[in-house]
């Protein structure tokens, strides 16, 4: 386990250790290694400051008969 994996495992173990059985610990370590491996692949992608997450936030407004509740920029 490298340092990042160890820290994440410690976090998981501290929070959920009482739910985890001894024989499951190795599996959880493997899963954390996969998560860190995924994260490192993501971190290698260089994005400019302007690239935003692919999700659009819409302020909520109460739907009415004439308004679907979605943003109307008129």
């Amino acid at each position: 386990m490298d340092l990042e994996e160890k820290h994440l495992f410690d976090l998981v173990s501290t929070k959920y250790g009482h739910f985890i059985e001894a024989h499951e610990i190795a599996h959880i370590k493997d899963s954390i290694a996969d998560i860190v491996s995924n994260a490192r692949a993501l971190r290698e992608v260089h994005l400019s400051n302007s690239v935003e997450p692919f999700s659009v936030f819409s302020p909520f407004s109460e739907p009415t008969e004439h308004n679907s509740g979605e943003i109307n920029d008129e």
Binding site: E24, I32, I35, L47, F54
Partner: peptide
């Protein structure tokens, strides 16, 4: 058996990595 411990490791996904995935998703799209 693997579902019984499955939810725990994933709680260690960092917020910044999740958001990075959503940003890369925009480039992918």
């Amino acid at each position: 058996p693997e579902d019984r411990y499955g939810p725990y490791a994933r709680t260690s996904v960092l917020a910044k990595d999740y958001i990075k995935a959503l940003r890369i998703r925009a480039v992918m799209a």
